[in-house]
Design a protein around this nucleic acid. Sequence first.
DNA 1: GTAATAGTGTCTCTGAGACATTATCGT
DNA 2: ACGATAATGTCTCAGAGACACTATTAC
Lengths: 301, 301
Amino acid sequence: MTPEEFDKRQNIKVSTDVLLYTVRNENQENLRKLPEKKLQLLMIKRKGEPHKGEWAIPGGAVESNEDVDAAAYRELKEETNIDNVYVEQLYTWGAKDCGLRSKCTRQNYAVSISYMALVDSEKLNIQAGNDAEEAKWFTVQCSTMATNLEDGKGSVLGKERDYYLTLVHQEGDKEIECSAIVRVKHIIEGRVVYTEREVLESSNIAFDHAKIIQYSLERLQNKVEYTNIAFNLMPEFFTIAEIQDVYQILLGKELLTPNFRKKIIDVDRLVVPTNKKRAEKVGHRPSILYKFNPDWFNKNL
Amino acid sequence: MTPEEFDKRQNIKVSTDVLLYTVRNENQENLRKLPEKKLQLLMIKRKGEPHKGEWAIPGGAVESNEDVDAAAYRELKEETNIDNVYVEQLYTWGAKDCGLRSKCTRQNYAVSISYMALVDSEKLNIQAGNDAEEAKWFTVQCSTMATNLEDGKGSVLGKERDYYLTLVHQEGDKEIECSAIVRVKHIIEGRVVYTEREVLESSNIAFDHAKIIQYSLERLQNKVEYTNIAFNLMPEFFTIAEIQDVYQILLGKELLTPNFRKKIIDVDRLVVPTNKKRAEKVGHRPSILYKFNPDWFNKNL
DNA sequence: GTAATAGTGTCTCTGAGACATTATCGT
DNA sequence: ACGATAATGTCTCAGAGACACTATTAC
């Protein structure tokens, strides 16, 4: 195909969506107890049709002559005034399922390139979004139910996993809640596995954005296990208990403290101790503050 | 932004590119020696400008109202008449670097969504491409040279890795050779690492496709270590020596046979023995044929 | 027997996981 | 002393890696 032919055929809109995650302390109950941490995601309220009033992943059109990665960074900067954070391309979503920003008609449909960004909440508290849009942080919760797909005779054809997603924004007494069920089907055909992702229910979440959120959570979980990705959610100095907490939230399971310490300090060498300690008067042995070990990059780049 | 505003702003072309890999036996020297396996990549010769006569990754425009994944499958089918194989979305490349199918001007530029597909060569021998384009298989070779980026005082700022890529197509005496150098820079800035990928030299490879090839090789290498991806390059039945060979080619290093056997048979349980043996009269103990263990999916989906 | 590849057995060391124990603070 | 969390030590077992060894074929 010549470039000329190519030019005539398409009318596809390209947008980038940025999933911005952070981890926040939710409530400071008492001195002796540690504050509870929560994974939070930034969403914006849609002001126009379609899906007016529902909550969507922030994003927008790629501008002409702009690199797609640059578009994601720009979008993030516009939305949150945040810079210099971890950003990663996630996946590019097709147009057919009408998932996206633009109304889906025969002539006019969209491709969405989704990105995931991670910030530590301390950085966030200083700056705030400057866009006219209404942006809010939602606490993310996700639980799973899996079933095997079998033919009559007991041999496995695949696996089906339903993700129950809940997003809650708290502001004093008021509470905004979004929820969705995303079904991920893995179908075995010979030696190839096809994966389908489908939004079964979606309440208060625009388009098929629940699907993208689920995908990002999956990626986040995987990467926590073998990269330093979690440290993008941490401030410069933190205790082992705090980073363990973040790991537990991301992985959705509890970890044994002594083993976690050993792994992160001695085995993976992801952190190094500083000579600082938590200054607050707490009713127990004060914890040593650690920081990310920059030396880790030497072995892992 | 309203959909109406959105519609007016863009003129971006979207295409999918499919990197189709296979593993082939190169030359059957003698009976006692095992045939040497090579990783091969399908490339097509460009018939129009720009980059006329150079070799490019097969691909084409996403058609209106077509899902991007579907476009990749369609492209693959058109190019090779192949179906039912492993296909994975790799990365979506920006427009600014003029990387792609369409000529890059201010008004008109392109986004490329690249996919990687894997086939076993037995399936390939039966079918052939039906497209009018000239498509050929190139043996892929890649070597690396890494240097640390340091400031004056010995602290590491990042890492720079040059990939020397060589693609060779053999046909009797004739030989077509493409080559390129791709530089991957990892720059540490605080706790965030930025990765830049740049084509330093490119001979006979169209656009910046060398960059995409390098990226796919990296992904392939990573996935070999923790998924069953390599088995998409294998026929139904194979010996341990053969699958070990494929692992070695993909990883670019030798593995110790006893340990590889133990891992793949007993630990990961990726393969199960059949009661078949290699029938050919070979001058040594005949090897047992194994197949991929479908049960592996139970634990790994 | 010999050449060549197929396949097994053994030893060491690291790291994952479970769990018991000690340390250090405020009150 | 007590409550609470921080931090360390110990034991077991699985798996990675290195390497010596045995098995089976054609000639």
